[in-house]
């Protein structure tokens, strides 16, 4: 089984795996965007910058404090999540009654500021971040070589996505969240602290992005621009999937990653545009998005 569809199976499965990894990041990022949008009615343009911050915090922890990958995986989302809480309380909370386009503009400005600061401090060439020793190496599956770290990224993202889905759909806290998404005033009247819920939700969404950033750090080099182009692709993913359903975001993210990976094998010129083309097709056929509710 050395060739499949006229392509060496090593190449095919290698790209599929890479697609799956990108898909993991799309899934985690679009999930965070969808959760934030649900409660805050804001499209968080800074999401890509916060994903980048996650990677940078992991790098800094290692560089300046000698804290390794596993603790960084825990600490970086917390640190970035706290910055998210501060941003929500200081800035976004003031937009509660404004048109939602202002939220987009504000977070766009934040993204420019965050990316600019990191670019000034660390340049654009990218900083290396090693794979943790426990996950170095890989195994031969017969038809392909599977690097352990890449398998871990897919597994970790999938677990995180499913855990998030479980919390939102199956727990009491999730029920509050869903209720507040439907009707914040009524939920407030029942004695639930909705502003706090909103703040924590934003913090959590941002922490998800940072988690993805830490996962990405050993695969792509840690680079101030790593989130800027990513976020636009994630927007397309969100348009394709629709933000109405949590599972929908997860499935769409992974599926589009795989499609992108396959495109890299069969028609590499289109690999950077294929998701946008799919977005156009979805808009033509099912304007509300694959999992979206009609407006």
């Amino acid at each position: 089984m050395s060739e499949l569809l006229g392509v060496p199976s090593q190449v095919l499965f290698g790209q599929l795996l890479l697609g799956l990894i990108n898909g993991s990041f799309y899934a985690v990022l679009s999930l965070g965007l969808a959760i934030i949008f649900g409660l805050l009615n804001i499209i968080n343009f800074a999401h890509g910058a916060q994903y980048m911050m996650g990677a940078f915090v992991a790098w800094m922890l290692l560089q300046y404090a000698g804290v390794g990958y596993w603790w960084a995986l825990l600490a970086a989302p917390v640190v970035v999540g706290i910055t998210g809480v501060v941003i929500e309380r200081l800035l976004l909370a003031r937009l509660r009654n404004a048109d939602h386009l202002y939220g987009l503009l504000l977070t766009f400005g934040l993204a420019l500021i965050i990316q600019g600061i990191f670019r000034n401090e660390y340049g654009v060439s990218g900083l290396p971040y090693g794979i943790p020793p426990e996950l170095a190496g890989g195994r031969n599956l017969g038809f392909m070589f599977l690097p352990n770290y890449r398998a871990w990224v897919v597994l970790a993202s999938l677990t995180l996505c499913l855990a998030t889905w479980f919390v939102i759909e199956r727990t009491r806290l999730g029920a509050y969240l869903r209720a507040a998404t439907e009707n914040p005033t009524l939920v407030q009247a029942f004695g639930i602290n909705v502003p706090l819920l909103v703040t924590l939700t934003y913090g959590f969404g941002v922490a998800l992005a940072a988690f993805a950033g830490v996962l990405a750090a050993p695969i792509y080099s840690v680079n101030p621009n790593m989130g800027a182009d990513m976020i636009i692709v994630v927007f397309a993913v969100v348009v394709i999937g629709g933000m109405g359903s949590i599972l929908g975001s997860i499935v769409t993210g992974f599926a589009l990653g795989i499609v992108e990976g396959l495109t890299k094998v069969f028609y590499p010129e289109a690999s950077s545009t294929v998701i946008f083309v799919i977005m156009i097709l979805v808009l033509l056929v099912k304007p509300a998005g694959l999992f979206g509710r009609a407006a």
């Binding site: 636009i232 348009v239 950077s272 545009t273 407006a295």
Partner: peptide
């Protein structure tokens, strides 16, 4: 294409379409 979706999606769609032109 873009007016097929409302509100905040409109901004995201125009951004994504423009990125398509960028890559082309």
């Amino acid at each position: 294409l873009a007016i097929r979706r409302q509100g905040i999606y409109f901004a995201m769609i125009t951004l994504a379409l423009a990125q398509l032109i960028y890559f082309v």
